[in-house]
């Protein structure tokens, strides 16, 4: 592993998420190899790497959709390896998957209300806070439409809004700008930046879009299922970008 910078000293309690020695297999294919990664509280960490290096697999393992063969995943110092995805969501992991995964045949409003499922003490007041519409004004005009009828950009905004409805402590975003038109990419970038500033939540982001990558505090670069470089995004060199960010 080639550390572009030396990791700053962080204590365990400063970390929202810590992944250590993670090994994940698809059948007998070894996909993730001894992955170590951490997301400090209130920071945005970006995971970069070419297609097929295991970024989405890592995120799916963190949210609980895939089971690691070995290794540990800790959320705020508590091990979550054995927990199901719904329990992890209720502990504070909000997930915006690649391809958005909007529930197609329920309305935008119902999609948003489903986000409340992750909130402890949910449903007593099943309303959508105005702050969601301040972040994504377009959703307010589409509450009655089916989720599957929205455009890609609108679905992406809905997916992020839905995750935010659960008031997560850690927001996991898998290529939120993939296949989205440039003007909407800027809106999504601005929204994610605003979310971090206003709520102080941590963000783990997989992204190919350089402008968005630079919004993060730190980066991890993946190659062949392992972390091969990490450091501050302000120090992202041209070499690293060319090696890991180009498709």
């Amino acid at each position: 592993m080639t550390n572009a910078t030396i990791d700053p000293p962080v204590t365990a309690s400063d970390l929202m998420l810590r992944v250590s020695g993670l090994n994940v297999y698809y059948g007998e294919s070894h996909i993730l190899r001894n992955v170590d990664l951490s997301v400090p509280c209130g920071q945005m960490v970006c995971l970069i790497g070419r297609n097929g290096v295991g970024k989405t697999t890592l995120l799916k393992t963190i949210v609980g959709l895939l089971k690691p063969r070995t290794g540990a995943i800790e959320l705020m110092d508590s091990p979550i390896n054995t927990l199901s995805p719904d329990k992890r969501a209720r502990l504070g992991i909000g997930y915006v998957p690649q391809g958005r995964e909007i529930i197609p045949r329920v309305t935008v409003k119902e999609n948003l209300l489903l986000g409340l499922e992750a909130r402890p003490g949910k449903r007593r007041n099943a309303t959508i806070p105005e702050s969601i519409f301040e972040l994504f004004p377009v959703l307010k005009t589409m509450l009655g439409r089916m989720g599957g009828d929205l455009s890609g950009g609108q679905q992406q905004q809905l997916a992020i809004a839905r995750a935010l409805m659960g008031e997560p402590k850690l927001l996991v975003l898998d290529e939120p700008t993939e296949g989205i038109q440039p003007s909407i990419i800027l809106e999504i970038e601005a929204a994610v930046r605003r979310i971090i500033e206003e709520t102080g939540i941590s963000v783990l982001l997989v992204e190919q879009h350089l402008h968005f990558v630079r919004q993060a505090d730190r980066y991890y670069a993946m190659q062949k299922g392992g972390i091969v470089a990490s450091g501050e995004t302000s120090e992202l060199s041209r070499d690293v970008i060319q090696q890991f960010l180009a498709v």
């Binding site: 949210v63 609980g64 959709l65 199901s84 995805p85 719904d86 969501a89 209720r90 997930y95 998957p97 995964e101 529930i103 197609p104 045949r105 329920v106 119902e110 209300l113 489903l114 986000g115 499922e117 992750a118 909130r119 839905r162 659960g166």
Partner: peptide
């Protein structure tokens, strides 16, 4: 609503916190 969500997209529903 939970049933409709789970039957349409089980994995995502679980990730939203629905006890599938």
């Amino acid at each position: 609503l939970r049933i409709r969500a789970v039957t349409q997209n089980r994995e995502m529903s679980a990730c939203l916190g629905i006890p599938t």
